[in-house]
Design a protein around this nucleic acid. Structure first.
Lengths: 150, 150
DNA sequence: GTTAGTGCAAATCGTTTGCACGGTT
DNA sequence: AACCGTGCAAACGATTTGCACTAAC
């Protein structure tokens, strides 16, 4: 995994290149994604920052704006599902897909080279230029299967 | 492909079983999905019904309610993408995945048995009970690649 | 006659935007 | 000093809901 200091350097450079400013808010949102290696909704991140940095008095609009900025920059990526289901994660990992537990919302990441390869083939066969691809397996994790059977 | 009359019978039966009523609105929404083999947003269907059956004076709320009902019943299924991107299709076909053109919104369906098999394996390996799975390849179709290069 | 469905308009919820102010360059 | 980012509150757009009325049973 990339060091936080390196990540931060990249971010600062990227901002500079685009004549954007480096603010405490932007830094903390990036850091939150980095430190809490996981998947969070805009609101999750807003709540975490409210909790951990109340002095910032951050606004939800800033969280929306920043996550969107990070996504455009390739530093974060989002997964959407059903209505009201959009979560972000740090965008620097190798491409991977997700298993999502419908009940507890646990998320497991996985990579399968055979599937990756097949997807390329399919796009090619249909003369599509593939820009993005996502796969989600929704179901019940081990724990929730047991609970649901009670 | 299933006959419309059979589909309708199933629908009527299903409604009866759940003490729900068979209305003109419900029938026409199902028929619209059946006749126009494709992928439509709630608004698309609303517009089509306004156009083709102005005497019905259908309300958008009914379209939302009915599509949701059809989805629960397994007669329709939805695909979501990015904000404001939810479309429905008739839900009686064999499972398939989608190639989506980012530019013109063309949608191509495909099935790949190798991928299907791999997904089962992955769920099993993680002790997940797979309930649903979706794969989307987003990109540019042949036509739009050319246009975008001008 | 009872119950469920409908259209309408209002409410809701996540997200975006305009603006005046404050922070970064 | 110039300009961008921020918080706030208002605006927005898709979807949902409460209600009185109508249609299906």
């Amino acid at each position: 995994m990339i060091e936080y200091s390196t990540l931060l350097e990249n971010f600062v450079k990227l901002l500079k290149e685009n004549k954007l400013k480096f603010t405490k808010q932007r830094e903390l949102i990036l850091k939150t994604l980095y430190d809490n290696d996981g998947h969070f909704s805009t609101d999750d991140i807003y709540a975490m920052l409210k909790e951990e940095h109340p002095e910032l008095n951050i606004g939800i609009a800033t969280v929306y704006r920043t996550l969107s900025l990070l996504e455009d920059a390739g530093l974060a990526l989002s997964i959407s599902f059903g209505k009201d289901g959009k979560i972000y994660e740090l965008g620097l990992k190798k491409h991977h897909d997700h298993l999502i537990c419908q009940s507890c919302r646990e998320i497991i990441e996985f990579v399968d080279e055979v599937i990756e390869e097949k997807q390329k083939e399919i796009a090619k066969k249909h003369n599509f230029k593939m820009l993005d691809h996502t796969m989600k397996i929704v179901g019940l994790c081990e724990k929730c299967q047991k609970i649901d059977n009670i």
